[in-house]
Amino acid sequence: MKAKITITLKNGVLDPQGKAIEGALAGLGFAGASDVRQGKVIELKLEESDEAAARAKAEEMCKKLLANPVMENYQIEILA
């Protein structure tokens, strides 16, 4: 199975990269774009064929390495 893990900064955590993107968008004339936040997406293949088992493994990966709970949230999608 494939897992797609989306990692975003928690609310309230300063995102200077998002701010810079917002500034660049405004500079290009895209008026009204606000609250830009940058995150990351990690895709990976898992040998598990069972969705619950695949999700459990991805969850463990997030906790141990992929996300830092001090500053980040994560969301796991299991794609068949």
Partner: peptide
């Protein structure tokens, strides 16, 4: 140690 080091606020 607690906490984390984020990107510098001035980028």
């Amino acid at each position: 140690l607690p906490g984390a080091l984020l990107r510098n606020s001035g980028l």
